[in-house]
Structures are given as C-alpha cells and as structure tokens.
C-alpha cells in the first residue's frame, strides 16, 4: 500500500485559514489502512480545525466527507461533487495521487494536501509501516532472496553490501536493517548464496521514474 503521514497541523491550518469553508476529503483505501487519511483521521483533523479556528478566532467552516478511493473517478459521486462545489477549497486526506486526482477533477478549486506521502510499504505491526518497494518498474527481487536492494539498501547497491554494514544494521541508522545482510541470510537459508557471485549489470533505470512519468495501458480491458 501507499504509506503516508499527516502533515504538521500548523501547515494544514495555515492553508485552511485562507478560506472560509473547506471540505476535508478522506480516502478509504491505502491511507485508511496506514491510519493517516481515512474516515477516522478525517474526523480527528476536522475536530482539530474546528477547535483551532474557534480558539484563534478564525472564521472557518469545516465539512468532512470520505470516499472509497480518491484515485478513481467513479468514487467522486454527485454528493462529493456537490460538497466540493459548496466549499471554497478542498483539503485532501488522500496520498499525493489522490490530491492530484481531486485537483484535476475540480479545476476551479484549490486542493491542499493534508498528508506527506512516504512510500510503498507494508505493515510490520500495528502502527508501524516500512518501505518495501521503490516502484523501479523492473522487479528483480528473485535474484536477492525476495529482498529488494533498490528499495531497502540505502545506496541501492546491487552487488553486495557497502563497508557500512555492521551487525546486520545499516550505517545510516542503527534502526535500519542492512538489506544485504538480510539478502545474504535469506539466500543462505535457500542454499543459493553462490548466486550472489553473479555480477549484476548496470540497472536500466528507464523503467523507473528516471524515464519520465509512467503510464500503464492494458489494452484488453480498455473501453
């Protein structure tokens, strides 16, 4: 899923304060799972904005609404469109995709992000999410025991650890696992350590964002 975190309140409040009536638009997909921008978090932020505006004497009316997904046109139904039209601005609780999609959909409204979108990640335990994929466009995790060096090595090294790997930890932060220690350990478990002798060639980054913004077309399902 896409993992995001809420922006500092002051930043959101500063944007909201430029308007009299804002719609706080939650998203029911990834950011609900990572507890950043779902219905619950939308409610919390709405309450905070209401309290802050009352406390600081700002004339602000906040409406809350959450849709299933902000990255799919079909979920922007009539109710949503009406609420958007009735507001001066929208504060999207979606990921960066949702914010833009919403902004595209309502070109006459300013849409503010309420979240900082972080990464593609997994839930390690309740309340803890961690990066697992960098969306490089050419998956090679099979060569590395199912552990992605592009996303999980701080230097995206494809041919082994750097000198900064110590006791299974990355040099940048002792809380970060060394991806290469994990790769080595897993390949050892699989009895495939010898495969790591293979020199991985230069990676073709053109499938990554380096190749420009990407689009996927699946012709058989297009209408």
């Amino acid at each position: 899923m896409i993992v995001a975190e809420r922006k500092p309140f002051d930043e959101i409040f500063a944007n909201a304060g430029k308007h009299h009536k804002v719609l706080l638009l939650g998203c029911g997909t990834c950011v609900t799972v990572c507890m950043a921008g779902g219905q619950k978090e939308t409610g919390v932020l709405a309450s905070q904005l209401r309290l802050a505006s009352r406390e600081k004497g700002v004339d602000l009316e906040v409406t809350e609404h959450t849709i299933t997904r902000q990255c799919d046109a079909e979920f922007f139904d009539d109710t949503t469109s009406r609420l958007v039209e009735e507001s001066d601005a929208v504060i999207s609780m979606g990921c960066g995709v949702g914010v833009q999609f919403c902004s595209d959909r309502y070109p006459n409204k300013t849409v503010y992000p309420a979240l900082n979108t972080e990464f593609f990640g997994a839930t390690l335990e309740q309340g803890v999410w961690t990066e697992r994929c960098a969306g490089c466009g050419q998956c090679i995790v099979d060569k590395f025991g199912g552990i992605c060096p592009v996303a999980r090595c701080s230097k995206s090294l494809l041919n082994g650890p750097c000198g900064g790997s110590a006791d299974g930890r990355c040099e940048i932060n002792p809380d970060v696992d060394c991806a290469w220690q994990k790769i080595y350990d897993h390949m050892e478990t699989l009895g495939r350590v010898d495969e790591l002798e293979e020199i991985q060639p230069l990676k073709d980054w053109s499938h990554n964002r380096d190749g420009g913004p990407r689009t996927v077309r699946k012709e058989d399902v297009r209408l």
Binding site: F9, Q48, L51, A52, K56
Partner: peptide, 8 residues
Amino acid sequence: KLLIEAGI
C-alpha cells in the same frame, strides 16, 4: 498532543 496543536 492534538489539543496542543489546536491551541487548547
């Protein structure tokens, strides 16, 4: 914490 952010 949230109340502090909202100035309460």
